[in-house]
Design a protein around this nucleic acid. Structure first.
Length: 245
DNA sequence: GCGACAG
DNA sequence: ATCTTGTCGC
């Protein structure tokens, strides 16, 4: 609707983002946009106190003729991990799912949800990779750069690179994910007998800190850290709610 | 040319 | 991502 587009345009204009950073006309423009945004990524701790943590994720219906993307953002108290707020938004996907270009498909809906979130978090964990991406701009970094927001990428599988060795069986075990001789993420076991998570820098958060945040919020018997786990549930509710309208 | 490939 | 309930095992 007109209201949705206004939210997108307003946020993009707020940071002087070129139109291609959100809606590139083709894959070549998309790649160029990712390379440009990747230069803006700050791969080290550069943020204030974190009183509130955030989680971001999206959901989609299997065969949706309308090609909708349902996004959800959640804010939780960084100390207690109790949810403080939640917001959702549904958008028609302007991009199909293509490995390496996930941001162009999901970020628009996430930005709309972000605009409605209150209170907002100081640091957000995004479902997907940060800089552990072919051009250094996974969805977590994409969202982080557009909003100049501290973000961490929390992916459930590898896009590029490979573990630099065997991963211990106990929770907390970790091993670098290496690509072209560089450690681009950390394979992190958050739960026994469960596949590891791949934690990477999103924006304004160093890798070591990113791993600490994930470990600190994943000690509840679940594989996913609380921010992302709650965002996933919220995104599903957003999808089911949208279906009933 | 062939296989890989976040969500 | 999603299709899908119960079931086996730690």
């Amino acid at each position: 609707m007109a209201e949705d587009r206004a939210a997108d345009l307003g946020l993009a204009a707020l940071h002087g983002a070129p139109a291609d950073w959100l809606h590139p006309p083709d894959l070549d423009a998309a790649r160029a946009a990712q390379r440009a945004m990747a230069e803006r990524v700050i791969a080290q701790d550069a943020h204030g106190p974190v009183a509130r943590l955030g989680g971001a994720d999206t959901s989609a219906e299997r065969f949706d003729p309308a090609q909708r993307v349902h996004a959800a953002l959640v804010t939780l108290d960084a100390g207690t991990l109790r949810p403080l707020a939640e917001s959702g938004a549904t958008r028609v996907a302007a991009f199909p799912y293509i490995p390496g270009f996930l941001g162009f498909r999901e970020v628009p809906a996430l930005l709309a949800a972000w605009a409605r979130l209150d209170p907002k978090p100081d640091l957000v964990m995004v479902d997907g990779h940060g800089i552990a991406h072919p051009r250094g701009l996974g969805i977590a970094s994409h969202l982080g750069v557009l909003l100049d927001l501290p973000t961490i990428g929390v992916a459930k599988s590898v896009l590029v690179g490979e573990p630099a060795g065997m991963l211990g069986a106990e929770p907390g075990a970790r091993v670098p994910l290496v690509w072209h001789g560089r450690a681009i993420a950390m394979a992190l076991r958050t739960r026994a007998r469960a596949n590891p998570l791949y934690v990477s820098v999103g924006h304004r958060v160093g890798l070591e800190s990113a791993v600490e945040w994930v470990l600190r919020t994943a000690g509840r018997g679940y594989r996913l850290p609380e921010p992302t786990r709650l965002a996933h549930l919220a995104a599903n509710r957003q999808r089911l709610g949208a279906a009933a309208r």
